[in-house]
Structure formats: structure tokens, C-alpha cells
Design a protein around this nucleic acid. Structure first.
Length: 423
DNA sequence: AATCCGGGGGG
DNA sequence: CCCCCAGGATT
């Protein structure tokens, strides 16, 4: 169908040819062995510092083929899903301190697990890791845990897909399994100047990653490709002058490597205003609710609220949501704080008002449970990141009102100072 | 194949 | 302000 493009590897992967990856690799000026040699030589000098879960307990690097403890690797790889290493590293450290081994994680309470994950996002990862730990322990019976050593064994665990399984198997056991994360997709897409988004050519990209993998040193090779993608073949301004594959790269030859990987046109993000009520009772306790287990921010706690209807005053929104979701009546008072928050698929503006409880025993009509808590105890509940800023503003308001602004109590709700307190 | 699921870093 | 990310599960 396509016109014969000879040795153009981009055209090769562009076709729906099952051997597209082979053709692409063959089309490269160098074969896989030469590419591996160049990459590993580069990595010897420019690879990133070794990371803790890829070292022996004494901190020295493992030899080729040497096995490592899979538990720290597993936890790290789950945290690394859609999350960059510098971001997750402190979470991993805290995680290992709190749950040092599989048994500790398996017997931990799910709220404690979520609390440890708080702020990292994609909270289903924490729930699945926790569930997987219990699954592994239950399957093993008495005696030490038997860790999976093949792809199906790891894929059987919740939250572990092909790329994560390959990363664990190569990292922990130095077994020859390929990976296909964002770094590898970008490096490969440029290497062959793929004309289509990687998501539309996943099979071809997997084949290419497998063909390229060094079967002799899979652990080092996978790490090297990721380091290349993270430090040289970066999304915006790739440093092609420092790349060991510059002479092999079709995107570089084409003159505009940053154009790859090609992506689909993004859709506009919806914008919503969320009215949030900080409901206080006569004893100074505040009302929170725990979100449903599934869906957005599942299992986390929050302050009650909901979407503002078109044309609806925000105070009406908050009173209505409190009535609909908690079956209570409350007087909506002054604004505490407002903050914008961007998720990957929508933008939200939280407008938070202090409220005074009037009547009605709170009911969990749209949540798992509701609870009156003392403000100083809010830190013991896992909240989404946006709510953590609300808590900070609330505590500041309750504790430190003596900053010479007595007049504020009268209702200076329009003051920008209130919203600045979050920044 | 398309959609959902957080949050932070960086140009 | 926009894009990107060490992806997986669900539909």
C-alpha cells in the first residue's frame, strides 16, 4: 500500500506490519549490538547515580545476574508510575521506614497506608500495592514469601502491568524483560522518527524495545535507556550533542528531534468551581467525610462540598451540597480561602467558606462516613493535596487571628489577604 | 481505542 | 501557562 520507502525506518513502523519493529531496527544504520555498546559506554560515565533499591544492602552495586530484594523494587516501581524519580524518592524513603518489608505492609491498616501515600497522587496505586502484599503473603502459606520470577507471576498482582513487571524483573533479578515507559517511548520514537503517536503503535514499540534490550545485561541496559531519556533525550530540548545514538537517530537526521514523539491533539480541559464548607459546631469541631472507595481520590477524606451550578451563588452551592450530601442545615459564613487546582483531565477552583452547623445529624449520603473532628486532629486523616492547603488556612485562622486585623471578623471576605495565606 | 486517575517539575 | 511524566485498569 505505502510507496516503497526503501530504508526509511519511520515508514516501516508507520505501517501495520507485524515485523515493523524488526524492519525499523534493521533500517537503522547500526544493528542492536552496536547500539547497546554505544549506550552502555555512555552510561558508564554519564548514567545517573545509583538508586537505593538497585543496590545491595551494604550500598554497593550488584553484579550482573545478582538478585536483589524485590520488595523495595516493587514499591519503587509502583511509585514511579507517572511520577518522576526525584518526586517519589522521599515518599519511597518514608514508605520503607514505615513498611520495611512485605509483612509489615500486609498487616498495616489501609488508612495508615493511604496516609503514607498522601500527596503522591494516583491513590489506587497505594491500595493495589497494599492488596498485592496481602495477596502474595496469603498465596505463600507458612515460611518465607515466594516471589514471582516470571511475567505472569507479576502481572497477577494488582497495579502491575507489563512495563512495571519488566522493570521489576530486570531490576531485581536481572532477567531479560523489556520495558516501555515514557522515557523509552520517547527515545524509540525519535530513534526511528515514528510518524504516529506511540500509543497507536504499542505493539511495534514493544517489539523494538525487546529487540534492542541487551540480553546479557538487562538491568543495566534498561536503566541506561531511562537515564538517556531523563537526562539527554528530554521532551523539550534534547541535548543531541551528548547522545551516544546521535548518529543512529532518524529524528536527529530529520533536523527536528523535539517534534517526536508525535502526539494527538489535546482536548480542552473542563473548568469547574467547587463550593466547600468548613462546618463548625458549637464545640469548635469540624465536619469531614471520607470519599467513596472507588473513583477520584478514593478512600481519602475531604471537606464536604460540590459543583457550582450555572448562575448559582457560591453560598447557595455550599448550603445545597451540605443538604444533599449530609442532610444538614448550615449557615454559610465568610470565605476562608480559594484555590485553583489542576488535575490532568480538569481544572477546579475551590471556594471555601466557614459555616456554622444549625441542625441535622450528618449522614454519609454520598460518602463512606462522616465525622466531627477537632481541627488539631486533621493531620491524622489522609487528605488530597488541595485539602491540605485548606487545613493549613483553617489552622492559621483558628490559631493566629491576633495579627492586628480584628476588623476581619466582621466579614472582610473580599480581602485578597485571605486567599494569599495559602501561598 | 478512549477514558479515568494526582500531583509536581520545568521550559 | 502548558506539557510532560519510570502506567494500569476499566469500558
Amino acid at each position: 500500500m505505502a510507496p516503497p520507502s526503501g530504508a526509511d525506518p519511520a515508514a516501516a513502523l508507520g505501517r501495520a506490519d507485524p515485523l515493523a519493529a524488526e524492519a525499523s531496527l534493521a533500517g537503522l544504520e547500526a544493528g542492536a549490538p552496536a547500539l547497546r555498546r554505544r549506550l552502555l559506554r555512555w552510561w558508564e560515565h554519564h548514567g545517573r547515580q545509583a538508586i537505593p533499591w538497585k543496590l545491595r544492602p551494604d550500598g554497593s552495586p550488584p553484579g550482573d545476574g545478582e538478585a536483589l530484594d524485590p520488595y523495595p523494587v516493587w514499591a519503587a516501581e509502583i511509585m514511579l508510575q507517572q511520577t518522576q524519580l526525584p518526586v517519589m524518592l522521599p515518599y519511597w524513603t518514608g514508605w520503607m521506614a514505615r513498611f520495611p518489608d512485605l509483612e509489615a505492609l500486609a498487616r498495616a491498616d489501609s488508612q495508615v497506608v493511604l496516609l503514607q501515600w498522601q500527596g503522591l497522587g494516583y491513590y489506587a496505586r497505594a491500595r493495589r500495592l497494599h492488596q498485592g502484599a496481602r495477596q502474595l503473603l496469603a498465596a505463600g502459606g507458612p515460611g518465607p514469601v515466594v516471589w514471582p520470577r516470571d511475567l505472569p507471576g507479576w502481572l497477577a498482582l494488582p497495579g502491575v502491568g507489563r512495563s512495571t513487571a519488566g522493570s521489576i524483573l530486570s531490576s531485581a533479578f536481572d532477567q531479560p524483560y523489556a520495558i516501555l515507559d515514557g522515557n523509552v517511548k520517547r527515545v524509540l520514537a525519535r530513534l526511528i522518527a515514528s510518524p504516529r503517536p506511540p500509543a497507536r503503535q504499542l505493539a511495534g514499540f514493544w517489539q523494538l524495545s525487546e529487540r534492542l534490550l541487551d540480553p546479557e545485561r538487562p538491568r543495566v541496559f534498561n536503566q541506561a535507556v531511562m537515564d538517556l531519556g531523563a537526562t539527554v533525550c528530554t521532551p523539550r530540548q534534547p541535548r543531541c550533542g551528548a547522545c551516544p545514538w546521535q548518529g543512529d537517530c532518524a529524528a536527529y537526521a530529520a533536523g527536528d528531534p523535539a517534534r517526536f514523539p508525535v502526539k494527538d491533539a489535546p482536548r480542552p480541559l473542563p473548568f469547574q468551581v467547587i463550593g466547600v464548607g468548613i462546618v463548625l459546631d458549637g464545640d469548635g469541631r469540624v465536619l469531614i467525610d471520607q470519599r467513596l472507595q472507588e473513583g477520584l481520590l478514593g478512600g481519602l477524606w475531604e471537606f464536604p462540598g460540590g459543583k457550582q451550578e450555572p448562575g448559582e451563588p457560591i453560598a447557595t452551592t455550599i448550603a445545597r451540597e451540605l443538604r444533599e450530601e449530609l442532610a444538614i442545615e448550615a449557615a454559610v459564613g465568610e470565605e476562608l480561602i480559594r484555590l485553583d487546582h489542576a488535575y490532568s483531565h480538569k481544572r477546579l477552583r475551590f471556594v471555601v467558606h466557614l459555616c456554622r452547623w444549625i441542625s441535622g445529624e450528618p449522614q454519609p449520603l454520598a460518602s463512606q462516613q462522616v465525622r466531627w473532628v477537632r481541627p488539631e486532629d486533621l493531620g491524622t486523616y489522609p487528605f488530597p493535596a488541595a485539602n491540605a492547603r485548606i487545613i493549613a488556612a483553617l489552622l492559621e485562622r483558628l490559631q493566629g487571628p491576633t495579627s492586628g486585623s480584628e476588623a476581619d471578623a466582621g466579614g472582610g471576605s473580599g480581602q485578597p489577604g485571605a486567599s494569599r495565606s495559602a501561598a
